[in-house]
């Protein structure tokens, strides 16, 4: 996508960063947004169809492959696919065992889902930035009958959409809260939030310290899902942005693209791993006795 000037480049990038949004527009009712303003006017009651489609398709792909392996899993000689899947499972399993010492049936499959799913979603970043959006535009014009192809928006990296990453991190946050309450009880949970880090033996002084503790602990607690979600989003968003910038420099994009893709491959795996590891660590902290 060679762009003649910086304005075109900026338009090009803005277009690529707009999700395919379906929602309630006060002027038009329930509809697909034709522009960025329309999408932002829809506010909270809108859904990014591209993000949902790709995340669900990739999640289903992950579960389909792993279920296939699980159905044929036996103690005999494993096939190559079995071997690969079992390697991932063992890797996740050993990561969980090293960090999480309690007993939980949920945490290992949770970590596996996070790792593989996030990895697959991140991997979409390596598909050349124009392929799927152009395909979507072609489909939009010929099948659905949109007059202007530039009104069709499509983003294929779900983890570069803040809704997806925050959706996951808030789910993890909910699990953290559930674990805290389940392991320590309501009173332990409240005590965790109010009696640390400042404590005093005098009840009156302690009562004075409670607001300060609460403030600190709430910030600590809330920073977990926010940082978890924003870290993944930031890395992938930046990666996507750089791919788009590279795609707009003409012929030089080929070596540049290769170099960045190689480097980004690292980020893709690393961010999936970090998201999984931090989830395990947070849940491990939540379920530990002090």
């Amino acid at each position: 996508m060679a762009a003649g000037n910086s304005l075109e480049t900026s338009e090009y990038i803005k277009h690529h960063l707009q999700n395919l949004t379906f929602g309630y527009d006060p002027g038009h009712g329930w509809t697909i947004a034709h522009s960025a303003e329309q999408a932002s006017n829809m506010g909270f009651w809108a859904i990014n169809l591209d993000t949902m489609l790709f995340s669900i398709v990739l999640g289903a792909l992950f579960l389909w492959v792993f279920r296939l392996v699980a159905r044929h899993a036996s103690s005999g000689v494993p096939s190559k696919l079995n071997n690969a899947v079992e390697m991932v499972v063992e890797f996740v399993d050993s990561s969980v065992r090293e960090t999480f010492h309690g007993k939980s049936r949920l945490i290992a499959p949770l970590s596996l889902t996070i790792f593989v799913w996030v990895f697959l979603m991140n991997l979409m970043d390596l598909i050349p930035v124009d392929w799927i959006p152009q395909l979507a535009q072609a489909v939009g014009v010929s099948v659905i009958g949109v007059e202007d192809p530039s009104h069709v928006y499509f983003r294929i990296v779900p983890t570069a959409d803040i809704n997806a990453t925050l959706g996951m991190s808030l789910t993890v946050f909910a699990l953290i809260l559930i674990y805290m309450v389940r392991m320590k009880g309501i009173s332990g949970f409240v005590a965790d939030l109010t009696l640390k880090p400042f404590s005093a033996s005098n009840p009156l002084v302690q009562a004075l310290l409670v607001p300060a503790n609460l403030l600190l602990e709430l910030v600590t607690l809330l920073s977990k899902p926010i940082s978890l979600g924003l870290r993944l989003f930031g890395n992938l968003y930046a990666g996507e942005l750089i791919f788009m910038l590279i795609a707009s420099v003409g012929l030089f994009q080929l070596p540049l693209h290769f170099a960045w893709a190689t480097f980004h491959l690292l980020i893709i795996v690393l961010q999936a791993f970090i998201f999984m590891m931090l989830t395990i660590v947070y849940l491990s902290q939540a379920s530990e006795e002090h």
Partner: peptide, 13 residues
Amino acid sequence: NLNLTLIGQSIAF
């Protein structure tokens, strides 16, 4: 924008 995708993603997750 933050929108319903957040919840949709959580449910899918």
